[in-house]
């Protein structure tokens, strides 16, 4: 899976309440993405264009089980690259089919607005402008299969376990 897109930067410890705040909780799935980062970066969700890539610091997605990964996916982001990712967020990323990689050192590889080229399966990340690259932690094959199937729900639906 190859992904290429414009980079946005986020800091350390970006929590789920910043991604999917309580005010968005009673809104429809389609309306929720507009609220991403509304508390810490108002207006940002309007600037994101489909295919953009989010590059974040340590412990991305700390917090609740709310489907924050789904909001980032539905906002149009193609991929998350972070120094480290909270385990619960990572599960939701796999299960909602939002491509996410841990890549220690990633925050030093990009400035905002630069382009990232990613070989997702191999976790190889390239900054063509700088000619610098970095290899992150590949998603384990068992989880990559879920991601590529479109997440858990399509799998369960195909087995007639959920509707």
């Amino acid at each position: 899976m190859r992904i290429e897109g414009r980079v946005w930067l986020a800091g350390d410890n970006i929590n789920t309440d910043l991604i999917l705040p309580i005010q968005a909780y009673y809104l429809s799935v389609e309306e929720q993405p507009a609220w991403v980062f509304s508390a810490n970066r108002p207006g940002w969700s309007d600037e994101v264009t489909p295919g953009d890539i989010l590059v974040a610091g340590r412990n991305f997605g700390v917090g609740s089980s709310r489907p924050a990964a789904r909001s980032l996916k539905n906002l149009g982001l193609a991929c998350l690259l972070a120094e480290s990712i909270n385990g619960l967020f990572y599960r939701n990323a796999v299960n909602f089919a939002f491509p996410s990689l841990e890549a220690p050192g990633i925050t030093g590889l990009f400035q905002e607005g630069e382009t990232a080229e990613i070989d997702f399966d191999a976790a190889e990340i390239n900054n063509p402008k700088r000619g610098e690259r970095l290899t992150g932690t590949p998603m384990p094959p068992q989880l990559l299969r879920i991601l590529k199937a479109g997440g858990i729900y399509p799998l369960l639906q195909s087995e007639n376990l959920i509707r």
Binding site: S65, P67, A69, L88, R91, N92, N95, F96, G151, I152, Y153, L156, L161, I162
Partner: peptide, 8 residues
């Protein structure tokens, strides 16, 4: 975990 994990 997330809601999809619970369904699984």
């Amino acid at each position: 975990v997330g809601s999809p994990d619970m369904a699984y």
